[in-house]
């Protein structure tokens, strides 16, 4: 660092300390204009598809299939939503229910198994711990496409084809490494003294886990739950080969079947897409803070 900047830094520090600091960013009007244009453009490109999805799901057929495309609809209609919820065209509610069951059960089981595993990695000392925990991260290198052929054979052998069990077992294991990693990091951030004090007071390790560590880790557990929920909610590859009959389809498979089975049903597809997005977006809004860590670690095949 140059002497000039040291001098400048010192002067600024004094100014700040005396409350004379110039806190506003000194930028010209021109620069601010450029900045806001760039920001506006980025937000537009990012958000436009979501806006368009919403508008299309609410527009009548006449404006969906005409040019120029409608950006601001003259009239809104709930027809597409009625079709989506009605049983005639396609069983959206069944798909939704299937996705919800698979995602909830997977997330619950993943949290349960990973909580114990992560505690073991974070706090207990035994031979092989380092190898195990690094090995679990290495597993992350194996992509879905590498597993899909042998997993299909395994699922056939287990007799789980066309049953939601096939997805449950696959998603549970695919989300375990992420869950172990996130929970392990969180457990390590809890001061060890708290647990040691409890052990001094005569608590057993299991009591410490249930009465102290778990309640303190509630935010991380909730985040891991929703994170694995999201992965299961999104998964297409395995579901597309394990599921055969409509009654067990999850949302990605069901919506794809709708799109390939009918022509010009964009209104219904957009309505279904929007309804599929809502659970994830609502969860994300409430849990943004906790989910950022998981997102940066990346979804399975993020």
């Amino acid at each position: 660092m140059s002497t000039k900047s040291t001098y400048r830094h010192t002067v600024d520090s004094f100014k700040n300390a005396l409350g004379l600091g110039n806190q506003t960013i000194e930028t010209s009007l021109y620069e601010r204009l450029i900045f806001y244009i760039a920001l506006g453009l980025s937000l537009f490109v990012t958000l436009f598809p979501f806006y368009y999805m919403t508008v299309a799901s609410l527009s009548p057929e006449s404006s969906l299939y005409s040019l120029p495309p409608t950006l601001i609809p003259d009239e809104l209609t709930l027809t597409h939503y009625r079709t989506v919820f009605g049983p005639e065209t396609f069983p959206f509610l069944t798909y939704f229910k299937n996705s919800f069951i698979v995602a909830t059960v997977t997330a619950g089981a993943s949290v349960l198994v990973a909580t114990f595993g992560a505690y073991s990695f974070a706090r207990l000392d035994y031979k092989g711990r380092g190898i195990f925990s690094r090995g679990v991260l290495m597993v992350y290198m194996f992509s879905g496409i590498l597993l899909v052929v042998p997993m299909f054979q395994v699922i056939v052998w287990l007799g789980f084809v066309d049953s939601l069990w096939s997805l449950f077992i696959t998603y549970l294991v695919q989300t375990l490494p992420v869950s172990l990693y996130m929970l392990g990091n969180y457990f390590r951030s809890i001061p060890e003294e708290i647990e040691e004090a409890a052990i001094m007071d005569g608590y057993s390790r299991l009591e410490v886990i249930f009465k102290i560590t778990l309640p303190l880790s509630a935010p991380a557990i909730v985040a891991v739950f929703f994170f694995t929920f999201m992965i299961a909610w999104n998964e297409y590859l395995f579901a597309s080969i394990f599921l055969e009959s409509q009654g067990v389809y999850t949302l990605p498979i069901g919506i794809e079947a709708l799109a390939s089975g009918f022509h010009q049903v964009w209104g219904e597809i957009m309505a279904a897409s929007l309804l599929t997005s809502i659970p994830l977006i609502v969860m994300f809004m409430y849990l943004e803070k906790y989910m950022v860590e998981g997102l940066t670690f990346g979804a399975v095949e993020g």
């Binding site: 949302l251 990605p252 919506i255 964009w266 897409s273």
Partner: peptide, 19 residues
Amino acid sequence: LVLLPYVAPLISIAFVWRF
């Protein structure tokens, strides 16, 4: 808001772009 494309379900993203 910027995180939305990454958070929204793949199936919805794929179909809105196809549309």
